[in-house]
Structure formats: structure tokens, C-alpha cells
């Protein structure tokens, strides 16, 4: 940032800042301090769609939501998984503290039905969280989801394939998920009211979010193991579950 601008902002605390508008927004704390800090609403945005684009399956892309889902469902509010790619495995979800009788799973099979079901559920305003897996969509369809999330004031998350990051998508936030140095990293592609940055999820927080003891020990700090070499010793436990 420009130092002169910085000085001005510091000397004038009453100066209106663009992001103030968003910090008023309701949100669900993510359970990860680095992520909460980076998001303008200080958590997953309520009344908006967050798009998550994961480089691979199995890097912890769903676990990222578990602390917030656990918070929401244990308050007795409803959450929905629409068109999950595999069976949501009850023991893992239960470990993470999710009330399973508050998590509705909808097998909608194709994208058209998924988008339709997501819009229905979002607009109803009866669900605190809606998570959908969509392969093919369009800017117009994503916009409908965003409007539905605003109407129903729902925290909505949509998983899309990584190659869709070049497509325009009028949603509140888009993040790319990948593993760098055995840690889950979130690259903000788009963030309404926030700055684009990369966030590293703290491995300790991540493991704690799983509810069950992660059997792979975390490597001592300072030791960085190269991914390519594949050493015999176990890798630092991080972007795991």
C-alpha cells in the first residue's frame, strides 16, 4: 500500500473504508484463524455463495467446512449436501461433531437437478448451510444461486472443478484449494470486499477440526520435507483428512 495513504488511514480512524460495508455481514466462523482473518465477513459469508475449486479430491477440501458445519448443525439448524461425489461417511462426519440428523443429503445426480435443488433449498431460507457439487454451470446459473443465497440468507458453498477458474462467476467469493509443502493453501481468486491473498491453513487447527486423533504425527517445526522425494518417514500431517 502507498505509505502516504497508509499514514492517512492511520491518522483518520473515522475515514470510511470500502471493506467496512462487508465486515458488517453475518458470517459463520470457519474454525481456522488464518481464514477468518482473511475473509471480509470474518467467516463464511451468510447470504452469499463461496466457490471452492480444488486441485484434487482428498486434499481436505470438505474438511475445511466441517468446523462451521458442526457449529451450525449442533445449534439445530439444517445443512444440506447436494450431489456429493461419494458417500458422505457418517463416522467421519460424526467425529467432526456434525449432528447427522440435521445434515440432509440430496442425490440429485445431474447438474441441472443439482442447481435446481440448490436454488430451492437456498431460497427456502430454512437451511443454514448448503453445499453443492456442480461440474458444469454458467455465469447466469451461478448468479441465480448467488441471488437465491441472498434471498434465503444462507451460507452457500459450491464445489467446482479447478479448470472452471477462468470462467466468470458472479458469486461472493471464489477460492482455489491446493497442497503446497504438505499444507492446504487457499488462493483467493475473488473476494467481495476483501483483498486477494493466499492463506495457509494451520495444520494443528486442521487436525483438531477432525474430532478424531489424526494418526499421522506432525513433523517438528522447521523441518520441511520435499513432496517429490517421498521419504520413508511419514510426511508432516497437515492437509489431510
Amino acid at each position: 500500500m502507498d505509505p502516504a495513504l497508509d499514514a492517512l488511514l492511520k491518522s483518520q480512524p473515522t475515514l470510511w473504508r470500502g471493506r467496512d460495508r462487508y465486515s458488517e455481514q453475518a458470517s459463520v466462523p470457519t474454525g481456522f484463524s488464518s481464514l477468518d482473518k482473511a475473509l471480509p465477513a470474518r467467516g463464511w459469508c451468510i447470504g452469499g455463495v463461496t466457490e471452492l475449486l480444488a486441485s484434487h479430491q482428498g486434499i481436505g477440501e470438505v474438511s475445511l467446512l466441517l468446523p462451521a458445519l458442526s457449529r451450525v448443525t449442533s445449534e439445530g439448524q439444517w445443512a444440506a449436501f447436494i450431489n456429493p461425489p461419494h458417500i458422505p461417511y457418517a463416522p467421519a462426519l460424526g467425529n467432526a461433531g456434525i449432528r447427522l440428523d440435521r445434515l440432509l443429503i440430496i442425490d440429485s445426480r445431474d447438474d441441472a437437478n443439482t442447481l435446481w435443488a440448490a436454488e430451492q433449498v437456498l431460497r427456502s431460507g430454512l437451511f443454514a448451510s448448503v453445499v453443492a457439487w456442480v461440474a458444469r454451470s454458467s455465469a447466469q446459473k451461478q448468479r441465480r444461486l448467488q441471488l437465491a443465497a441472498e434471498t434465503g440468507r444462507t451460507w452457500a458453498t459450491v464445489y467446482r472443478p479447478l479448470h472452471t477458474r477462468k470462467e466468470h462467476s458472479p458469486v461472493a467469493a471464489r477460492m482455489r484449494l491446493s497442497i503446497v509443502n504438505a499444507r492446504l493453501v487457499l488462493d483467493m481468486i475473488k473476494l467481495r470486499g476483501g483483498s486477494l491473498q493466499s492463506i495457509i491453513i494451520d495444520p494443528a487447527e486442521f487436525d483438531a477440526s477432525q474430532g478424531a486423533e489424526w494418526p499421522i504425527p506432525t513433523a517438528p517445526a522447521g523441518i520441511e520435507l520435499s513432496c517429490a522425494s517421498f521419504p520413508e518417514a511419514s510426511r508432516p500431517g497437515s492437509g489431510s483428512c
Binding site: 461419494h86 458417500i87 461417511y89 467421519a92
Partner: peptide, 24 residues
């Protein structure tokens, strides 16, 4: 270890060892 349940069922959560979120 997973069952699809009707909505009114009350499951009894027990703690399991580390388990994956997705089961194929």
C-alpha cells in the same frame, strides 16, 4: 458403518478412529 436414514431417526454418534469424509 453408514446407513441412509429417514429424517426422523436419531442417530447415536460414537467416536471412531480417523475416517475419511468420502467413502467410495
Amino acid at each position: 458403518a453408514w446407513m441412509s436414514a429417514l429424517l426422523e431417526h436419531q442417530p447415536l454418534p460414537g467416536l471412531w478412529p480417523a475416517r475419511p469424509v468420502w467413502l467410495l
